[in-house]
Each structure stands twice: as structure tokens, then as C-alpha cells.
Design a protein around this nucleic acid. Structure first.
Lengths: 356, 356
DNA sequence: AGATGTGATGAGACCGGTCTCTTTGCTGTA
DNA sequence: TACAGCAAAGAGACCGGTCTCATCACATCT
């Protein structure tokens, strides 16, 4: 009948202790599973606790122990399959080790990232995993270290920070992709990233404040230069609409590239759609390569050549390193660089007849 | 040179108070932004706080206020685009309202869900959003209500629970899909879901402990019965491998369905691959419909007919209802049923010549 | 027997905030 | 001048655990 909303306040150790006729300390020992208690007392306390529906207050516990058993994770966008996969890796490892995950979305905005980090620290997470939106605007990350909490970087390295990091082999991957395209005869290749703001003109790697992207662009440009091939970088593909606009602009003119490398699967998808809408055949008139082996890339026609990134493993690695730190492991910061693999599929199978 | 790890303990209100020459209560008033303090004192305290690098301890704050400013979210699998999109909706709303999100993965396992819920309650989240793995095994959800915390169900209704829920129009959607396929001439249609365990044989809606799936299957079966068409339900497509096996089994025999409805985009993707591998042309020999308008469904050849679910909005709606409760809104539980839309694409464009 | 050790329990401080209640000092008013 | 009224600040309890230290009974050792 009634929904029993106005239940009396939750039972505390003190309540249980009183009801069981023992001291608060003893009840706490039983309920908190520490110290040593006789079996008789233990059973009695446990029975009473059950009776009173005692539920521990983890907040109070954290308060005295100083540990919350929680790790904070700040990613750019959980909707991006890249991050959701990484987060899955993190939370699987975390759970196995008895940790919980507090998630925060930065939307790739440093201001949001800053406030997310601040809040996580205030909540006394034991450590953090962050994929920093910027690798220069990092004083909030340094702040964390000052509080004594370990932090691990995910996917994006920051040289200035002496912390554990798990990243992919971005530079080599991008270089390999560029080389592949060049070998296929392409002489005008573009790299499209969500980094930067829409409309921003690329002037050099210095414009790229996301470490992983900068590495990729550097690898890409290196390969292009090595082969005397034109390499263009376009920024600001931050959403479907913007990406579409850039794609149209890129593919429209005379100087349109014959191959495009998409910095993530969301961008690749939009490029794919744009090419279709503009009647630009893939791979004949346009080759496409995508960073991240998103599940759909193998079912399109043509299927899409991808850089397979160990995304889930990146999350796992980051979580493992962090948890080791939390468990007291000392030593110099480690930087795990996980290998990528270039999976060649239909979207790069075309040959460029004329431009050679 | 040194990494300054062994910093002295973080400053507390008491430290600030002492250094500023005021009482703890006054410093707390300034730092906690409550009560009334003179401007002179406020400025002095704030200056000292900055000097001492005071950072509030949200744990201690929550402890006395009883509110943590956090909502717990338990989903089946964040890696599933369905959930990652919903989680994004939740966290956007939460952040706007000043709440944080603690995420837990249940892996669609009730035991994990139970422990996740328990832990979230122990952490004193203010409220929970859960997409329950089972709609019968729910005593842990009832427990939550007993603690006085509101809970909102995401995507999956549970009749027995008098709580807010945000679900999609599953039954009608499934019915519409079935009708579409029947209108296209299909007389043998299968529905494939991740619900259940691999190998489990479907004996009736009672086998389906996930509410949304049961609704869909009921809508599907209804439509089939109404039209005297054979409708088959297959369970246990819980991962790529299992899905592939079921797909092979389903498509292999003489009694193979001419149309399959996939309960989520992960299943649809595997079905798509399986059909391709088995040289079963879509849509000519097999029609395919997918629940959830995953981004890739529009770029395959043929593109995939989908039930567009308002996933992000589902998350938003759930979060909004929960937060309203947290802000004190009373009243009967609400059940928001968000409309779906059937988007017809190439995968159902085929006609069935013979079987008619 | 007396000293020593040990296992079980109790008493109470403590973590870092919030919040209630009290005290203080100043202004306005009869 | 005396006192009400009020704003500002202080004292200290409290939240619900953990943890140190003290106490006590009883077994062991010399």
C-alpha cells in the first residue's frame, strides 16, 4: 500500500553495536572486516546488522582511510567508439581490481576538462586517467600530481608530464599509411582531424595541441616530404556537419586530393557519405583510410582501409598502470606504446592512372 | 628536480582558519559559500586559501550534507553504441544540473548489476539510473528504494517497480517492422536478440527477461500471428562469435527465414557479415532490419533499414526525471515512452518472388 | 607466585567538512 | 542612557566510519 518512503534513518555501526550489546569499535571490526573478533561476537553482530539492514557508508569509510576505491576517467567524448571501447577496457580492469570508475566527459574542451579534474580530485578519487584535450594547457594536471594522486594519460602523451602513459604507435602508423597511399600512386593526400576549430587554417604541427594527432600528422608529413608528395592537413572536423562541409570543400576543387586519411571513424564515416553524395567513387577517384578499426569499416562497399588501434587494450594498459601505482608501485613513469596494424581493404585498392 | 611527491598534507578549513586568524566556522562559511561573512574577512580567507592551495574535500562535505551530487548509472555495456549514446545524454544533462556520473558496467549480468548497485548505494550516490538486465530479479532495485534514493529505469520498464522510466516505443516499432516485412512478401521472419544464453531455445515471451526485448518480441509475434506468418525468435546472440554461429545456423537450412530483425546494431553487423560470407544477397535473398540507427547503417551496400531509437534522448529523459526527483519533485512515477521511427533503406527493398 | 604475553574488547580521538547555538559589538530608538 | 535588534564571528557538536591505545581475563613461563 504505502511505498515506505519515510523509512527511519539508515542503521549505522553505532546502532548495530548498541543493538548487539557490544562497543562501537567491536561492531566496526566485524562490519569493516578488520581487526580480530571472536566468532561468537562476530555472528551476533552480523545477525543484528542483517536485522537492522545495515548498509556501510563508503563515504565515511573513505573519509578516514583516505582511499575511495575510485578512479576518475576524463575522456573527450564517450559517444566516440574509440573512447567507449577504451572506457570499457578501463572499467573491466578496474572492477577486477576492486575499483570503481567515475566518468567525466570533457567534450574535448580544456575548460570542461579542468573543471572535471577539479571535481574528481574534490571527490577524492584515488587516481585519474585522462586523455588530455591539450598538451600545453596542463597546469590542472600538474595540480593533480601536487595532491599526491597518480595520473595516467590515455592515448595522448604529454612530454612535460612525468607520468605513466598508454598511447598507440601513432607516428609510425601515419607514416605507414602515407607510404601505402604513395605507393599506390597518390601524389596529393589530405589528413583530416577533429583537432582545432572549424575554419582554422593549418600552419604547422604547432597548431595541433592533441599529442596523438600531432604525432600522426608529423608521421604523415614526413612520409610525404620524403617522397616529394603534397600533404595537406585540415582541421576542425568536430562534428558531422563540420566534417561534411570540410569534405565538400576539400573534394570540390581542381586541387582535390586523391586520398584522404581520417583521424577517427566518425570523420571517415562522414567522408564516406560525402563522397557517395558527390558521386566520387571510392577507391577509383578517392582513396580513404581511417584511424580506428571501427566495426562498420569492414562492411561498407568498398570496405575501408584502417589503422587498427588497440583501443580496448589502451584502456586496459592505462588502468593497469594506474592501479599498480595505487598499490604502491614506485619507479620511473612508464610509457607504453602499443602497436597498431594497417589493415588494407577496398578503399585504397584503386590506382591513380593520370597523376602518375 | 625533485618531483615534490612528499608534499605536506592538503590544507583543510581548519588550517585556513588558523592562518587567516578566524574561527573554523567562519572560514568554512567562506570556503563553503554559505552563511554570511563580512567582505573584509571573506577576502582575507580567500587569499589565505589560495596561498595554502586549499582544495575542498567533497567527501567530507557529502558526509554532513547527506548529498553527494552524484548519480550512479548502471548499463549493460558501454561499448554498445546504444548505451554510450544514452550515457552521453545522461552525462550532458547531469553536468548541466551540477551532478556527476559514476558509471558501472553490468555486462548484462544480474549478479554484477547487483553488486554495482550495492556499491553505488554505499558510495551514497543521490540517485540511480539503471537499465536492468532482468525484470524479475529486482530485489536489489527495491532495496535502493528502501534507502530513500530515487531510481529511474532506462530503456527497460519493470512493471513491479513504481519508479520513473524512460523507454522507447518498442512494441509498436517491432510490430511495424514485422508488418513492413510481411507487406514486402516475407512469410518466414526471424527475430534475433542478445537476450538469453547461447544455445537457449525460445519457448515464449516468458523466456525474455529484458523488458524492452520482450515488448519487441510480443509486437513481432502479434504481427506475425495477425498475418498468419511464421515468426521465429532466436536468443543468445551475446557476442560476435555467438551471433555468427546463430546466423549460420539460421541461414543454412531449407527453412531459412527470408528476413531477419536484429535486436541491436552489433547483431545486425554480424548478420550483415555472415550473409556476405555465405553469399546470401541482401535484400534479394535476405531482408535485414536493425533496431537502433547506428551510424554505419546508412553507408553499407545495401544500406540497412532501421528502427531509429531516440537513444540520446532516452538518456536525457531519464536523467531529467531523476534530477527532478532529487530536487524534490513529488508525484506519481512517470513513464516516458519515446517514439521510434522506421527508416526504410535498401536492405528491405527486395521482393520475394517464389514464396508468395 | 609473580612476571609476561596474548587475544578480545572497550573508550574515545580523528577525518574535514556543516550547522546550530551562543556571544559579541554596533546601530537605532524611546 | 538603556535597551532592542541585527549582523558578524566563534564554540563545539555532529556525520559514520577507522584506528590507536588502554584494559582485562586468562594462559604460559621461570
Amino acid at each position: 500500500m504505502d511505498d515506505a518512503k519515510p523509512q527511519k534513518a539508515a542503521a549505522t555501526v553505532a546502532d548495530v553495536a548498541r543493538a548487539a550489546g557490544v562497543s562501537k569499535a567491536t561492531a566496526a571490526r566485524v562490519l569493516g572486516r578488520y581487526g580480530v573478533v571472536s566468532d561468537a561476537v562476530r555472528e551476533r553482530v552480523e545477525a543484528v546488522a542483517k536485522e537492522l539492514e545495515y548498509r556501510p557508508n563508503e563515504l565515511a569509510r573513505s573519509m578516514t582511510t583516505g582511499r575511495s576505491g575510485t578512479i576518475g576517467v576524463v575522456v573527450g567524448d564517450i559517444e566516440n567508439p574509440f573512447f567507449s571501447s577504451a572506457v570499457r577496457g578501463i572499467s573491466d580492469v578496474a572492477r577486477a581490481a576492486g575499483f570503481n570508475v567515475v566518468l567525466a566527459n570533457s567534450g574535448e574542451d580544456v575548460a570542461f576538462e579542468r573543471s572535471a579534474v577539479k571535481m574528481l580530485v574534490a571527490k577524492r578519487v584515488d587516481g585519474l586517467i585522462v586523455s588530455p584535450a591539450s598538451d600545453s594547457d596542463i597546469e590542472h594536471l600538474i595540480e593533480i600530481l601536487k595532491t599526491g594522486r597518480p595520473i595516467t594519460l590515455l592515448d595522448r602523451a604529454v612530454k612535460e608530464l612525468r607520468v605513466d602513459m598508454a598511447t598507440a604507435d601513432d607516428r609510425a602508423a601515419a607514416s605507414a599509411v602515407a607510404q601505402l597511399l604513395i605507393d599506390r600512386g597518390h601524389r596529393n593526400i589530405a589528413y583530416l582531424t577533429a583537432c582545432g576549430v572549424p575554419g582554422q587554417v593549418y600552419r604547422g604541427p604547432v597548431d595541433l595541441y592533441t599529442a596523438s594527432v600531432r604525432e600522426r600528422v608529423e608521421g604523415f608529413i614526413d612520409a610525404c616530404n620524403r617522397n616529394a608528395v603534397q600533404g595537406t592537413v585540415r582541421l576542425g572536423a568536430v562534428g558531422a556537419k563540420q566534417t561534411r562541409a570540410i569534405a565538400k570543400d576539400l573534394l570540390d576543387g581542381d586541387a582535390a586530393p586523391s586520398a584522404i586519411i581520417a583521424s577517427d571513424s566518425l570523420i571517415a564515416l562522414e567522408l564516406f557519405k560525402a563522397a557517395r553524395d558527390m558521386n566520387i567513387g571510392i577507391p577509383d577517384r578517392l582513396a580513404l583510410v581511417c584511424f580506428h578499426d571501427a566495426d562498420w569499416t569492414s562492411v561498407t562497399s568498398p570496405s575501408v582501409t584502417v589503422v587498427q588501434q588497440p583501443v580496448y587494450q589502451l584502456g586496459e594498459a592505462a588502468a593497469k598502470m594506474l592501479i599498480e601505482r595505487l598499490k604502491g608501485k614506485a619507479g620511473a613513469p612508464r610509457h607504453q606504446v602499443l602497436p597498431t596494424a594497417l589493415i588494407e581493404r577496398g578503399s585504397t585498392a584503386g590506382l591513380i592512372p593520370e597523376k602518375m
